[in-house]
């Protein structure tokens, strides 16, 4: 597979009606064929996770600002966060705001911060639900959600809003590490069955600023984040389609989560970037699903 530019990949996805541009980078719509593949991949994840007896939860794509503030997200990724502001003024202020809007002048001064922020990851609403003492086997929660990252880019795999299928494991350190290792193998096998040349790598998050470089170096050195990568645009710089984060006792301390024997619980999460997996499939197998290899079609459309 030869490399492709971000623009050419974007244009090919648009030409085949897989994505629908809306004018803002990273906020495109999805066509029905794209959605069909995405849903079917999600079903394969469910199938692989069937025996795990996870608790399923569904949250809206916004979270309580207090949970967000408590989670340290703003400390690590201020540049990615999406805080929701709204209007709460009177008639006169409304008229002033609308004058500004119509005259294309700034109108942010008429907005004030609400109690909610856009969910930056699907797992954040889960941690407050785990507060208290876990059962002996710990807990496992399975969610899917739209998440927001403020990183507008013409590169189709770098979106401002996308879906993550995410699972969170809480328990004793060895329970959590074993679960993560098991899913790393499982995730690789699942993606390879779909004909994707998936490989694991040690990774770090895009922490902000100089302090962020230190956090990223710590994360790499302690091997706290792994990604499964697939070449989408380039073989030299493959794209992460699945990510595993081991938080150690970070959320256990913040949200007072204890193991059955009274220790601070460890947590880990794994997330499949559903749009990215879908894009990787179109990039590797072609833009027309009818022409995909028979063994891949058999897995997705049994």
């Amino acid at each position: 597979m030869t490399d492709i530019s971000a623009q050419d990949f974007h244009d090919a996805l648009v030409a085949h009606k897989l994505i629908i541009p809306v004018g803002v980078p990273g906020a495109f719509g999805r066509g029905p064929v794209f959605e069909d593949v995405l849903r079917r991949f999600g079903d394969l994840v469910s199938e692989a996770a069937k025996g795990d007896v996870a608790e399923h939860m569904l949250f809206p794509p916004i979270i309580d600002r207090r949970v967000f503030e408590k989670s340290d997200y703003l400390e690590s990724f201020p540049q990615l966060a999406g805080t929701i502001f709204s209007f709460s003024g009177n008639d006169a202020q409304h008229r002033e705001m609308m004058n500004c809007v119509h005259e294309h002048k700034p109108w942010a001064q008429y907005q004030s911060m609400t109690d909610v922020v856009l969910a930056p990851a699907a797992c954040y609403p889960i941690y407050p639900q785990l507060t208290g003492t876990l059962p002996e086997d710990g807990r496992l929660v399975d969610v899917q959600n739209w998440v927001f990252r403020h990183e507008p880019s013409p590169e189709p795999t770098r979106m401002q809003s996308f879906r993550i299928r995410e699972m969170v494991r809480a328990g004793r350190p060895e329970q959590v590490a074993d679960w993560r290792d098991m899913w790393l193998e499982r995730g690789l096998a699942l993606l390879r069955r779909l004909g994707l040349p998936a490989e694991p790598e040690t990774a770090s998050d895009p922490f902000f600023g100089r302090g962020g470089r230190m956090l990223a170096a710590n994360q790499r050195m302690q091997k706290l984040k792994f990604e499964v990568v697939v070449p989408v645009l380039s073989a030299a710089k493959p794209t992460a389609v699945c990510s595993f984060n081991y938080h150690q006792d970070h959320f256990g301390l913040l949200f007072d989560i204890k193991t059955a024997d009274g220790q601070v619980a460890h947590t880990a999460c794994l997330g499949f970037g559903l749009e990215r997996v879908t894009m990787a499939l179109f990039r590797v197998h072609g833009y027309v699903t009818a022409e995909w290899p028979a063994e891949v079609r058999k897995v997705l459309w049994p």
């Binding site: 690590s76 100089r210 302090g211 230190m214 956090l215 710590n218 994360q219 050195m221």
Partner: peptide, 26 residues
Amino acid sequence: SHASVNVMLALEASFDVEFPDRMLKR
């Protein structure tokens, strides 16, 4: 890790130094 970042920034301010990238590690 987050606390160690604050320690690093406070050391820079106190000793008027800047830690180069190679030293920004655990």
